[in-house]
Design a protein around this nucleic acid. Structure first.
Lengths: 159, 159
DNA sequence: CCTGAAACAGAACAAAA
DNA sequence: TTTTGTTCTGTTTCAGG
């Protein structure tokens, strides 16, 4: 298990420019990146390695278009619960982490306790997921928001 | 401008295994991937190229840890509007697309019209964003949900 | 910490089974 | 459609400024 250490690593402009280039396309050659950021191969490579080691960047991934693989439905699920004990929470978190259709899960401040982003093939598949979830853990209230259109979806963070 | 064509490309088990491997780590060599999926370099490479061309995969990116670069606050924003004209919508979408702190934006079915995922440095930065947004476009009602804890965040789709 | 170069690994493609 | 082989581009390392 990897421990999450590094709080707020200090990055200079060159680091940030490199990150920007990698977020845009991680498949670029060092030469291309060096040219974009106005530096040369070795310093770029050193900084990439430094940031990797510091945990600033994770491994690179490919973004897969959900619709081409038949995942046409996306739901945001708002969950309220009456249970707030540690034991219940562990069970709930484990259930979420185990389900690949849950792309994101956040614990919230305020009235609503949790929000999930769930990707499934269709409404029927969402219902299967929903039934399975509420049979595993007790929740007080669930609201599902169905996405009609993905206006924007960006993995890139503003630097 | 790239046109989004390909509906539901047909993928076989080998394709799916390759995608899985690439989602886990796009930086792997063809040999490693080939070994994982029980095939060899060239067929793997051919399928990757085929899937790239078909638009199944986008470019590869690195996942940057928000907290190491000082983006400590994440909000989900639920928006209701009374305006449903095409002109207003275009303005609204353009505003969202132009703001890098908006990581995701969906148009919804039902009571709530839009949901946004917004990443900023702190609550103060969120307020700046919020004020700027409502000064650009008229919205009827806005609810912000503050994330206390990111339980799960996965870019990988279930295959 | 950067520049440049040399050594090495892997990707891209072609041919042929 | 896979296997094998060749070429060439890009990564990694290292010596010197």
């Amino acid at each position: 298990m990897t421990v999450k250490l590094g709080r707020a690593v200090q990055l200079d402009d060159l680091d940030r420019n490199i990150l920007r280039a990698l977020q845009a396309d991680a498949g670029q050659s060092l030469d291309e990146i060096a040219r974009q950021v106005g530096s040369s191969k070795t310093p770029v490579w050193n900084r990439i390695r430094k940031m990797r080691d510091a945990g600033v960047m994770g491994p690179s991934t490919v973004v897969v278009d959900p619709e081409t693989i038949g995942l046409d439905a996306c739901f945001f699920v708002l969950i309220r619960t009456s249970e707030h004990e540690a034991e219940w929470q562990q069970l709930f978190l484990a259930a979420l982490r185990a389900r690949p259709e849950v792309q994101e899960a956040h614990r919230l401040a305020g009235e609503i306790d949790y929000i999930l982003k769930v990707r499934v093939a269709n409404a029927r598949a969402y219902d299967v997921f929903y039934q399975a979830l509420i049979s595993e853990v007790r929740v007080f209230n669930v609201t599902a928001l169905l996405s009609m259109e993905e206006i924007k979806s960006s993995t890139a963070l503003p630097l």
